[in-house]
Nucleic acid binder design. Structure first.
Lengths: 346, 346
DNA sequence: TCGCCCCTTGTAATCGATTACATGTTCTCC
DNA sequence: GGAGAACATGTAATCGATTACAAGGGGCGA
């Protein structure tokens, strides 16, 4: 108490705090990590010392000793997709609240995927992996898991088929059904689809749901009305080009993402079609842009924040050993009816 | 060589590699960090042992010893803005190439800002800070810098006035001038502006550039034609509402961001105005969406990748002590002329 | 041949926290 | 009053790498 070091030449350490509080380093550590184990008076003294010195634990030291990093790696297929950024916000908020940090890696370049993950996880830089990328191959993924058997993995939004990990996702099948039904009620009978990347689960699930629902209702779709894509605006434009040269087209297009829908509508408009009077177009995600697009986009809303939140919670449970096994958590979605869909043209 | 441990119960450490290679741990470490200091033959032996064991350095241990974290923290005002996500991609690529990781924090919630930074930097979790958020108050920022005098800071895109740090940014003034000039050439004489958040440098700079240019050319603008906003789509819509009840309006609106422009055009359209025949509208950023928006948006393109790249390089130089001081790096921009602008209505 | 330097390598201290184990104190209950 | 539980605290080992310092050996000039 009497001493005061005016110039903290060096950052304070546990020993400094301990000295000032008149206790051992073990006690300081306990106060910081397991307050109940320490008597009220000592605790107060230590906390006062902490405040006085402005002490902060050195993460590297703690991490080394506890063999953990208190940070989680998120693997995102494409950072520039606003849909993912939104989920990341949710993740970050939740993790920070529990004193975890969020490490972000854009797997977009693909070249890294498996190597990247190894680099971060094996090196003990991340305690867990939240995968938002469903394009990772099963085998790549298996390799990483084999290398890091103890690293908890949670899938969010997308996932890898046949991998037993907790997964948080939207009701993709239900969403697509709502879209098809909505168009059906508007009199449409001939449907087309612009897919996400063929290797992506989400793209596959949505396409399959599309095909079954159309079939169930007795509508029509054809092989060449199902166009390849990759969730991007560019894919939508490319699809429009293909449609431009089709002899016979559907009256309604269901796109695997909002971005595809924007590109598609833009391309169709440029090609002289009017949406929705000539063709109806729907998206999936309900990103903020959907509302102000011209025409405003009919789409499926999924709650991004809740997805991020839920994924983060699941991860934390996993880390803390409250095994929430290979639970699949499916979040409800709802249709947002706007102006990109209308009655079938006569 | 003869020995082979079939079950690597535990992850290999330097001592394991050393034993297998028949050298000391110091040598192993040298091979990994300072290869020239070791003879060719030893080096090969060690590398072979590394490969055999599948050894990876334990980052926590290295970080503790070297007192660094090999990761950089990016402070982003709003992760869901695609503009930033793009910059992040650039940053990440560049940093990863140098074996640095990118830590991302969304300062959007504001509540954290200064505290957040402290938490990560003081705790030695980040070796440097890349600030993309120009809304941080000068004093908040000063606090953080005082607490962490040795933490290098680079501003990217946005910046904090009067803080001496390297900064990478677009030619905002030039961009706004190009927009005003372009509209002027189209016959417009009365200009309005929708701002970013008033506390944000970028918003201020763009507004000031707008006002000076209009004045220079002898055009007209008024106090109440300069609307408050915050870079968001919602701000654009709100602006449209205000314009709707104006008695006398400009013929051209310059928005501080593409997103504002989207919201504005959407709102104006809903209110019965046609863009561009009734009013011209411009954005700033040229995000991907600008091209497919209806009408396609006239805007200023800034190279996001280059911005991320350049910021990352500057940061690495800073860390390595190649002092690239308070250099301000201004990247050129160019006008992209699309259909949201047209001749002044008669 | 001696002495000096350079090159390569090893020994052991070190970074800063956590925690198993030991110690000491107080309290309870028979 | 004493055995033993329950609690509070301290001592010192430990996590896994890096690196200052020391030392061995070879080459070279005098």
């Amino acid at each position: 108490m009497a001493e005061k070091q005016k110039s903290p030449r060096t950052t304070p350490k546990v020993v400094d705090v301990a000295r000032i509080a008149g206790v051992s380093t073990a006690t300081v550590s306990r106060v910081l990590n397991d307050p109940e184990k320490v008597s009220q008076t000592t605790r107060d003294a230590v906390l006062a010392a902490v405040k006085e010195t402005g002490y902060r634990v050195n993460r590297a030291a703690r991490n080394l000793r506890t063999n953990s990093s208190r940070s989680i790696l998120a693997l995102v297929p494409n950072l520039s997709n606003p849909f993912f950024s939104n989920i990341l916000s949710g993740l970050e908020r939740e993790l920070n609240a529990e004193d975890y940090s969020l490490l972000v890696t854009d797997s977009g370049d693909a070249l890294l995927t498996s190597d990247q993950m190894d680099r971060l996880i094996s090196a003990g830089q991340a305690d867990g992996l939240i995968v938002l990328d469903g394009s990772i191959s099963r085998s790549d993924f298996a390799t990483v898991q084999a290398d890091n058997p103890s690293c908890p993995v949670v899938f969010a939004c997308e996932w890898v088929e046949d991998v037993k990990c907790p997964s948080v996702r939207a009701d993709n099948v239900g969403g697509v059904q709502k879209l098809v039904d909505h168009l059906w009620e508007n009199g449409h009978r001939r449907f087309g689809h612009v897919m996400g990347p063929a290797s992506n689960v989400l793209a596959q699930v949505r396409r399959d749901a599309f095909m079954s629902r159309v079939q169930e209702l007795g509508g029509e779709t054809r092989q060449n009305w199902i166009l390849a894509g990759d969730f991007s605006i560019a894919a939508g434009r490319a699809a429009a080009d293909q449609i431009g040269v089709m002899r016979d087209t559907p009256t309604a297009w269901i796109c695997a993402s909002d971005q595809i829908a924007f590109g598609l509508i833009s391309g169709l408009t440029r090609a002289g079609f009017n949406v929705p009077t000539d063709m109806s177009v729907t998206g999936f995600d309900n990103i903020e842009m959907a509302e102000v697009f011209n025409p405003p986009l009919t789409t499926i809303h999924q709650s991004r924040n809740q997805m991020g939140h839920s994924a983060a919670r699941t991860m934390l449970e996993l880390i803390r050993g409250q095994k929430s096994d290979a639970r699949v958590h499916i979040l409800p979605v709802h249709l947002v009816d706007r102006d990109s869909t209308g009655p079938v043209p006569c």
